[in-house]
Structures are given as C-alpha cells and as structure tokens.
C-alpha cells in the first residue's frame, strides 16, 4: 500500500475542507477501499476518515413514515436500530458481509462506492430513498449511474440516507459463494402508490429497477404475478460464478421469494 496522510476530522465542515486537498479521498468503514488500496489500485495522498464525525452516525425515524440512517453508521447498528422502523432494511444490513465487516462498513461507504454487487443500493433504489450530502439531496433514481459510478461530485460527502417506509418489503440475496457479496439480490418494496423492485449483483449497469415486475406486482402483489415475465439477459453480468442466463433466472426467482417473504 502506498503511504498517505491520515486525517480524522471531528466535524463535517472540517471533513469537507480536508477533502478539497489534492489527492484526498474519504474513508468510511474501509471494508472495500482498504483491500483496493492493498492491491495498489487506489493510492490517495490524503485519507480523510469520516468515522470520527458524530453527526454522521445513528438511526432515527418516525414509525410508518421514514427512517434516516447517518452515512457513517455501521451495518451492525442499522441491523439493530432500524429494525423497529424498517425490518427489511435492518435485515439487509444484518446480512452484509460478516459480523466483523458489519461492525466497520457503513451505508455511506457502500453507496459512495456503488459496487455492482453491494446490498445497500438495492434497498435505496427500491425504497426511493433520498441521499443527503454535504451539498444537496439526491433522489435514488438519480443517484446510481452505473458500475462504481454515482451522482456524487468531487469532494461531496454523503451525510445520510432517508428511506420512506413501505407497507411491505423484503430483500432476498443469493450469495456469491466466495466473496459473500450478492451474486444477485432483489429488494421488493410495496408502497401505497405502487411496488418498486431493485436488483443488485446482476447487471453490467449496476443496480437497476425491474419495471415489468413493478407493474405486475403493483397490480397483484403475489409471486404468481411474475409467472409470465421474462428477464432480458443481454445486460446481465456473466462470470465464473454465473452466466447471464443464470443471473436472469435468479432475478425472477429471488423476486418471487422476496414477494413471498414481504
């Protein structure tokens, strides 16, 4: 790993300032960034830890309305504290990685990185959540822009994510057997104005909404409603863990299971 200057600001303002330096990069839980740095695929000059900023941590919400998760909140805390507000979100957080990873990894880090196999993007997109940054609010539908690509600008820091709470929801993940990331994961959320279905792990374009399923499930929220649908596999990831056709199959199978579990 190349060396760097390590700074750990105590406030968001200080963090924003630190990140304006040449070659600066934000560090949240580090569970993805650090392995990348070990491979020398990332080599920041300054690493700005966000874990010391109290304002970025915690879970708060209003039952039945919304829940807001601070960007630097570890997955384990979300798993415990979001359960009362949004059980499907809490369950997703409790299934990321492994316990030690969940004690360090954060929602902000996951969303800023936007790994195509990460779990959180599915929850954020399926929930139509709002990503709040040091500069603005970004709607989930505008935020995800393909593999490892987001609407975040240089130096912009995610501060929190607000999820409207659905009537019913569930996330079903099929693990990639080695990394334990999602080979495919489907988050289904039923709101008063319709159903949203977001798929992670499957597409070359990153997390996406399966609109055919959303339409079918909005009319009839049952696994059977998916029976006639097919998933186009032309944009699906094909790798040694699964062909494109296999992933397309998983999208449909897991969506059905998520509906059943919701």
């Amino acid at each position: 790993m190349h060396n760097f200057d390590f700074v750990k600001p105590a406030s968001l303002d200080e963090a924003v300032k630190a990140l304006s330096a040449e070659g600066a990069q934000a560090l949240s839980g580090g569970q993805t960034l650090m392995p990348t740095m070990k491979q020398r695929l990332a080599a920041p000059d300054v690493l700005v830890s966000l874990t010391g900023i109290a304002a970025l941590k915690g879970v708060s919400g209003r039952a039945g309305a919304s829940v807001t998760v601070g960007a630097a909140t570890p997955h384990a805390v979300v798993a415990a504290e979001a359960r009362a507000f949004y059980p499907a979100l809490a369950a997703l957080a409790g299934g990321i990685g492994d316990p030690a990873v969940r004690n360090r990894g954060t929602i902000g880090g996951s969303l800023a990185n936007n790994d195509p196999a990460a779990c959180y993007p599915a929850a954020v997109l399926a929930s139509g959540a709002t990503i709040t940054t040091s500069r603005r609010d970004i709607a989930a539908d505008d935020y995800f822009q393909g593999l490892f690509s987001t609407a975040l600008e240089e130096g912009e820091i995610i501060t929190g994510v607000t999820f409207p709470i659905p009537q019913k929801a569930a996330y079903v993940k099929f693990n990639q057997p080695a990394s334990r990331f999602a080979l495919t994961g489907v988050f289904v959320a039923k709101y008063a104005d319709g159903v949203r279905v977001a798929v992670t792990g499957a597409s070359n374009n990153g997390v996406f909404r399966w609109s055919d399923a959303e339409a079918a499930l909005s009319a009839d929220f049952s696994a059977g409603a998916l029976a006639g649908l097919t998933v186009d596999d032309s944009e699906m990831i094909a790798d040694l863990h699964g062909s494109a056709a296999y992933r397309a199959n998983l999208v449909k199978v897991l969506t059905g299971r998520a509906v059943a579990a919701a």
Partner: peptide
C-alpha cells in the same frame, strides 16, 4: 478482508484488524 484470522475487538466490537488503520 475475508479469512478473519486477524479479528480483534475494538471498543467491544469484533473487527478485522487487517482492514482497519491503526490511526483510525
């Protein structure tokens, strides 16, 4: 950050010490 041989507790929480900077 997969194998877990390096797990220690930081403030009572299990973490993978190979994926935490000492300064942090």
């Amino acid at each position: 950050s997969q194998c877990g041989a390096c797990v220690v507790h930081v403030d009572g929480k299990a973490v993978k010490s190979c994926t935490v900077f000492a300064m942090d």
